[in-house]
Design a protein around this nucleic acid. Structure first.
Lengths: 142, 142
DNA sequence: TCTTGACCTTCCGGTTACTAGAACCTCCAT
DNA sequence: ATGGAGGTTCTAGTAACCGGAAGGTCAAGA
């Protein structure tokens, strides 16, 4: 099948398939005499695998590792689990950061009239009125 | 003061200050005869403002809006609050997406031995063993 | 005065994971 | 034969910077 059909079957856009090939996430596709890429059902499975992994937030680099483990029938499930744990950790860190931002914003919003008047605790806080600051220095850690 | 001192005082790296200027977030700095940028204490305040807003996850574009509101003494606090609310919404959406990924990953991890054996439900799931799928299609919405 | 070193300047490239579009080629059906 | 859909490569743009190169500037010490 050509790239369009592989895209339709896998849910991964043609452009993205070419991109994955270009960065080495998937091996170069075979070609017809005229240069068209050709894919097998197995290739489509691989694309679906990648698509699901990406959907869980794994980076393309992680996907490459996961693919390698998937294709290595002698893998240790511990290695897979370790990648998953790393990913959970990254997600948790990100969530914590976002929650912290959200709390700060909600605090500020609560104290803001939100009407036609110009005085606004949100701006005051951003300007450094040194009231409370939940977040502060969360940026570099992100 | 020169850019280095402004950076030290504001906590915004020199590179970033130049970047903010280049994208129009802050106005072009005045220059010495030899071309060095010069900053006032007020400029440092502006940089701190931007830094705090960025720390709450506002985009650079949003920061420009916030700055404009800050400098407009006739603003309506409602306008500021609206931006904050938007930001909270964006954060909540992102958090929901991440939580969903996390749940899926944790479910899979729970079912994975995580030892030397090769069989691994995480890989099986990614390969499409069609067990449960919490996330699915969360990607485009992100 | 000269030099050294720290600091400044601009500009280019890399980061992540794609997407849009241009210019051109190929395939199939009418 | 031709038209249109779909393939090919390549470049550039997205967000928000960071790193580094090449070269100019400034203040202090010898």
């Amino acid at each position: 099948m050509n790239i369009g059909e592989a895209a339709a079957r896998s849910g991964v856009p043609s452009k993205t398939i070419r991109y994955y090939e270009s960065v080495g996430l998937i091996p170069p596709a075979h070609r017809t005499a005229s240069g068209y890429r050709i894919y097998t059902e197995a290739d489509v499975q691989t694309l679906r695998f990648v698509s699901r992994a990406r959907g869980l937030g794994f980076s393309v680099a992680d996907c490459a590792n996961l693919l390698a483990l998937w294709q290595d029938t002698a893998r240790a499930s511990a290695d897979v689990k370790a990648l998953a744990r790393q990913q959970v950790d990254r997600i948790e860190a990100k969530v914590a950061e976002l929650q912290s931002m959200k709390e700060t914003l909600e605090d500020l919003m609560e104290r803001c009239h939100g009407d036609a008047r110009p005085d606004c605790p949100i701006l005051s806080d951003l300007a450094g009125s040194a009231s409370r600051c939940h977040v502060q220095e969360t940026r570099k850690t992100a």
